[in-house]
Amino acid sequence: MVNKFSIKNLDMYYGDFQALINVNMEILDKEITALIGPSGCGKSTFLRTLNRMNDLIEGVRVEGEILLDGENIYKDIDVTKLRTRIGMVFQKPNPFPMSVYDNVAYGPRAHGIKKKAELDEIVEKSLRRAAIWDEVKDRIKKNALSLSGGQQQRICIARALAVDPEVLLMDEPTSALDPISTLKVEDLAEELKKDITIIIVTHNMQQAARISDKTAFFLNGELIEFDETDIIFSVPKDKRTEDYITGRFG
């Protein structure tokens, strides 16, 4: 296995407020890494640093190094290229107010693919990969906002997959979904793992335990513990990790 991400001495500031403190982490290719920790500890911040989504916020400053396949994402890679390689799925499903087809074809079109046959193929393949093809194949021209929340979220996953990312960042992708939709997304993540690296933020301990290979526990902007998921959930080394996963925290 190779290191997909290599994060070294990462500090991240919103203006004067330091949201991430000296984070060091090696993320392996084609694994699922779960990020856990109490609200406000910096999980989303960390995730959004990996695809430079935080660049959009005024006053954000990043120090340290984040390497993707050995390249510094803030120096060596163009930001649009980076975000093509690293897909993102958000907490609240955010399909565009357009048809299912146009949603999924959006990324490929943005990268210059115009041929209808080619787009058709990408759309179908992506919807199949996101395990939603059968549910929407008859309403592919319908507005994506008319679908259920769980379906919308899988459309968003299909939309991310359509540009063939190497990494998928998921920020609490199931927190707005019912248990059945949640299971579908979890199954999907495990299926996708064959091809891509997944980093997922979750407040659901069972979810982290079920699907992830590695788990990282954050607290107040610091990475407290990062290890095999089995170890984190059975014999954590840090007392704070143990308190958190057993629900004895704060």
Partner: peptide, 23 residues
């Protein structure tokens, strides 16, 4: 969330404005 969705797919800022924000 629309802007983030578009930028997150590697679309440029201008593409995002004309294809998602203005529509």
């Amino acid at each position: 969330s629309y802007r983030e969705g578009s930028l997150g797919l590697g679309a440029t800022k201008l593409y995002t404005v004309f294809r998602v924000v203005l529509p």
